[in-house]
Design a protein around this nucleic acid. Sequence first.
DNA 1: GTGGACCCTGTAGTGGCTATAGGGTCAAGG
DNA 2: CCTTGACCCTATAGCCACTACAGGGTCCAC
Lengths: 142, 142
Amino acid sequence: MQGIGALARTTGVKVETIRYYERIGLLALPTRTSGNYRIYREEDVARLGFVRRARTLGFSIDQIRTLLDLADQPDRSCASIDAIAKEHLEEIDHKIADLTSLREELATRIDACSSNRVAECRILEALSPAPDFMKSAEGRSS
Amino acid sequence: MQGIGALARTTGVKVETIRYYERIGLLALPTRTSGNYRIYREEDVARLGFVRRARTLGFSIDQIRTLLDLADQPDRSCASIDAIAKEHLEEIDHKIADLTSLREELATRIDACSSNRVAECRILEALSPAPDFMKSAEGRSS
DNA sequence: GTGGACCCTGTAGTGGCTATAGGGTCAAGG
DNA sequence: CCTTGACCCTATAGCCACTACAGGGTCCAC
């Protein structure tokens, strides 16, 4: 039995974010005091903790919504949960791969550039479209 | 000399995005035809190509704005450009590290779970706050 | 002169929050 | 009993980097 501020401190989720989660239907509507303050029970603490942890692991709000629905049906097979987690793992692997190749490209450019004048900067060159690109565009222009 | 649609095809940037870039001041205001259509020159093609490439490499709009400003001063040292690129590289390394540790955690959970009932699902357990967390909260509740 | 491809502006929506304005509630201290 | 200040409330707007309308205008070929 605690107010929204205490819940925020307990879970490490900001007050505004808790209200936001409630608004989008991720958290149940809590009971209210006579003065219209929200009051939360341990159940709510656990649920918000779950949401927070899942967000930290990068699950989307929609994925979490589904996970919460599934968690409420303890007798089902957890295959769907497994599927969501695996899907998410693939997304993460994809992102890592993208970032890694991007990193390599950028690192190469930075090594090639060592405090010259802007006019000869290899980084800017790397960002500019290839000369071919422009020449072919010029060639094509009527 | 081409319209916005042609520019979009040439650079692979959507028409709406080009107009957006113009609106936020990333692209110069193009000249217009008598019928108020935008017309672009090779210069504009190159600039948009630069923006697109930088975005693909994950630079923020603000970083690109700065890069474009710097590119317009060919006699300066390219130290600032180097700095932006290095800063961005660090961000990328950070993201890769975060995603990698996250990946490991998730992968462990998935391995531990093999089509049981939801009630025993290791993935859900991993997402739930630790029992300690709840017990201590119960203990403290007055 | 008409059909359809192209273009225009302005506004609202996305996700996942965060921040502000402008108030109300409540318990402790004077 | 009254004030102070911490806490809470709603509603709305802003962030990033777009994307997607709605509701029109332009242009060119047939």
